[in-house]
Structures are given as structure tokens and as C-alpha cells.
Amino acid sequence: MNSEPIIKVENVTVRYDDRTILEDVSFNINRGEIFMIVGGSGCGKSTMLRQIIGLETPVEGRIYIDGENICAARGKQKKEILKKFGVLFQSGGLFASMTLAENIAIVLETYTDISQECMAELIDMKLASVGLRGYDGFLPSEISGGMKKRAALARAMALDPMILCFDEPSSGLDPVTAASMDAIIREMNSALGTTMVVVSHDLEGVLTTAHNVIMLDKSVCGIIAQGDPRKLKAENKNPIVHSFFNRIAE
């Protein structure tokens, strides 16, 4: 298989007005790995993710998704790149006025012209894969927070994307449900080979699930540590990194 990194971030700088959030950030994400972006609150994790999925364009720098620069892509080309992504937003982003089935169907209807029968089977399959079989007729307001996240994941997976992106998949969930989110991420990753890009501040999940991490920090407007999270925990001497991975309050 292709061993080129699936996502290449090169010299990305993000500014809001005059405030620099990220400066000259570069890193690679390998095919099929679980990659996590960690760091304190407000350090720019979500901002980084928004650049990668093309919601915003950085002031400077390039981001290659499977060889194509998403920062320069427009129109149809961009839509093609976006098809490679499934994104799970922090609050789920399910359409509240639609049932779970309709939430998934809307993606399938947009990108394919499969029959109703086939669509129903697919929806059943996707909901089953996140443990929500039989909930297709429920509205998002009728299910719990953890179920909403899983439903949003089912929607993100509707088109079997190459890359799944998560913004804080475990935020607002109890530890057990959070752990089950991590388990789902690992399961999807090993079974489907999907590259997972996860923004997280949940240390437990980072240590058990991530293959690779970058840690962002406000002080440098960028990466202060990267690599295998278990090694970082054991070896990194930087006080910020050390306190994050060893749960020490600043």
C-alpha cells in the first residue's frame, strides 16, 4: 500500500485578526493510524482541525490530503477532497429535526443514487456498527449524549471515508461512555483501516488509543511535543508536557 503520509501539514499559520493562534506548524499523519491532537484548553486544537477539514483556510501554509492541497482547492475539486472525510463535531451536529435514519440518508442521497431498499440496509448497517440498531426512527433529542455522538459517527461513516475526524469525541460523556467511544475508534480503525484524526484532552483515551500525538501549546503557538504518547509520558522532560501526561495541575 501507499506509504506516503495521508495528511501533510506544512508551515501552517492561523491568525484571527491580529491574534496568532498557530504559527508555522508542520506535521504528518500516516495512513491507517490513530492520530491525536492534544493540549490545554484554547491552545488551538479545534482550530487546527478546522484547517485540515477545509472549513477555514490558513493565512500561510499548505495542507495536503492524500496528495492534494485542500487550502488551494475550490469548487468541485474541494468537494472531491471533502468526500474523503467524515467529521464528528464536538456537539455532534446532528440535524435536530430529522430522525437518525434521515440524518444518515441525507448524506447518501447527496452523493449516491442507490435505491431506497439499499439505503435502508446501509442505514441499518451503519447504526448497528455503532450499537444503535433499531434507533433509526428516533430524533436526536430523544437519545442520550453518548448515543448522539455514536449516531453522529454513524453519519460520518456513511460513505466509508478514508479519514475520520473527531473533535473531542468524549467531551461531555461519563468515563465509561468515553471509554466506549475510544473502543469504537479503535475497532473502526483496526477493522476498516480508516485513518483517525482525533482532537482530545482526555488523557486516558490518548494513552490507550493513540498511535501518535502532537501536543499544541499557547506558549509557542504550535507543537511542543510529538510522537508516541506512552513514550512522551515516560520520557519527555518539558514541564508542560510532563504535567499534561502525568495529570499534574499547573
Partner: peptide, 9 residues
């Protein structure tokens, strides 16, 4: 891939 989806379905 197939197992993941068919086991649960």
C-alpha cells in the same frame, strides 16, 4: 471490514 458490519447487523 465485512465482519465488523455483518456481525452487528
Amino acid at each position: 471490514f465485512v465482519d465488523l458490519f455483518s456481525r452487528k447487523i
